[in-house]
Design a protein around this nucleic acid. Sequence first.
DNA 1: ACATCAACCGTGAGCGCTAACATTTGCTCG
DNA 2: CGAGCAAATGTTAGCGCTCACGGTTGATGT
Lengths: 339, 339
Amino acid sequence: MSAAGPRPVSIFDVAKRAGVSHQTVSRVINDAPMVADATRARVKAAIAELGYRPNRSARTLAGGAVRSVTVFTFDTSLYGTAETLRGIEDAASAAGFTVLISVLDPEQAYTEGDILGRLSHDGAPAIVIAHDETTTQTRRILRKAQPGAVVATGDDQLAGEPGAADWLVPLDDRVVAKRATKYLLSMGHRTVHYLAMPGKARRQDGWAEALAEAGIEPPEVVQSGWTIGSAAEAASGLVADTGVTAIMCGNDDLAFGVLHAAHRAGRSIPGDLSVIGCDDSPMAAYHVPGLTTVDLDFRGVGRSAFELLRHKLEGGPEPRPSWRSPELIVRETSGPPHH
Amino acid sequence: MSAAGPRPVSIFDVAKRAGVSHQTVSRVINDAPMVADATRARVKAAIAELGYRPNRSARTLAGGAVRSVTVFTFDTSLYGTAETLRGIEDAASAAGFTVLISVLDPEQAYTEGDILGRLSHDGAPAIVIAHDETTTQTRRILRKAQPGAVVATGDDQLAGEPGAADWLVPLDDRVVAKRATKYLLSMGHRTVHYLAMPGKARRQDGWAEALAEAGIEPPEVVQSGWTIGSAAEAASGLVADTGVTAIMCGNDDLAFGVLHAAHRAGRSIPGDLSVIGCDDSPMAAYHVPGLTTVDLDFRGVGRSAFELLRHKLEGGPEPRPSWRSPELIVRETSGPPHH
DNA sequence: ACATCAACCGTGAGCGCTAACATTTGCTCG
DNA sequence: CGAGCAAATGTTAGCGCTCACGGTTGATGT
């Protein structure tokens, strides 16, 4: 149907060429023991001469070890998800795994069939990058259907999901946002406003918690879209209000939008207004003024997620967590309030 | 090996349940004709009751129509590639295709075997996002091995690659950079410096061409890495030199780095120095000052690449190109030179 | 009434590979 | 020197699906 040319070389062609059975070839390409060195060499030579490459579909169909991961995410171009994906890729390709991606639309409600149907086959290994409702729901569906072959990044926001340590690589958004908010409060701000990304996210909870612990009634949350532009627009009211002295944003992009709006409104940063982001995207350090934000090691999280998945699949030693913990990075968009 | 539980439901289970042969079920799930409406309904009911989902590996192995694309790219977190990937995804998932990604290391030289071995099977459809040497080489390998199942984005830089229209979705980096450089020249700059991304890219050629046509000897190109930070560092000499009045950058990120360096060096933008980027990434419009750049419709290119691939695979009407053409967007980082 | 022909549906084979088992070979040891 | 055993290799049966056929029906034409 697609490529022309003669039928591609199969395991049998190699076997004939090397004068062995196809099973011996199979053993060689799978690095199985019980093959004499001489035979192994002969088979490898035949493979090289013929340019043989195993067919992955046949392999998975025949029930061999699975060598692919499906990654579920909701937007590959956001900094956080892109970096996590990148971490997964790095680890996966080093381990000889293929990465498949399945992009979910955050606006849409998916049924169990929708999600499972995106897998290449029943029980296919998957990683869910979960930071919003759609992906969290996806994670729940997958874990229910095939608990042994799913891990996720995100935080443990759901009661009734026991033993999370076995399958979750946590990046606790709630704690991160809480810490950032507390920092702002410690600078002397009376309150901190919050610019939220779409969907009910955990960061918002952390912000609210920090205020609650300080005995402050949380001001109304301002909703933004995912883009810088939508943030600039959404924050136009906030920046016009001289009573507002500190804004915490769902992520760095939103913070850049706020900064832009503040600039247009003629407010000085951080004299009139402190702005704080989240993610420490590459731009944060090079923006003028430098954006105060929280460094999140998404790439490390992605890598760890893959390692954990592989551990569940193939056993072996328990991988220990290896991502940097979140760290508040104070730059130039935050400071004590003006008085 | 992975999921526990009973063996997943197969086409035979559905067949038995619906009281038909497995082949009839196959016809139904493939929307083939020659099935009575009543039968079709019965089969669909059985599918729903049993929660049957076809096994993709078995499908491709059995030689059915291929329903996946492998995307080759060299960095999923750069704006241009991320957006192109996004466009491919959008189109692919709308068409029921699975997207696989294969990330290439630009530092590494790949053999034919390396590249072909990343395909799920011989002749698997692929899209190459080619903007550097590694990916261009990958494109060449794939096109040679399986011309009927490969399309690429990038520009037609290689002589001896005939009939490019059949498989290339071009985004002519050379022309884009040339236009931007000419604009800078038209503002009165004596010359334009160039800050380059790693690898020999076409944008640099366009810049050189514009200067050549104006009879200007191109100044030495300054090399940068991919990150904003590396650009800031690489440009430190350039921004310190008051003789430099205009810098064209390989992409927006590099431009942000230059802007940062210029700010630190105390040069005013665009009074002392004009800076121009390329890509129109989301930040460009919201940076202060707004970055002059070229809008490139990567997402549209990705979408078109998929449509073209699908056309090659399944025939049907020739898809017509549907991406916006590049457009220079003048904002606040460019202007006439000071004197 | 009989051939004709569509429309519909079923049967068998095989895609390329691996798991499980069967078989052969080369040794060691009593 | 043959039992006994391990290492090395071969044989068989599928994985779940699609392709290429072959068969069965019922309506149609003459």
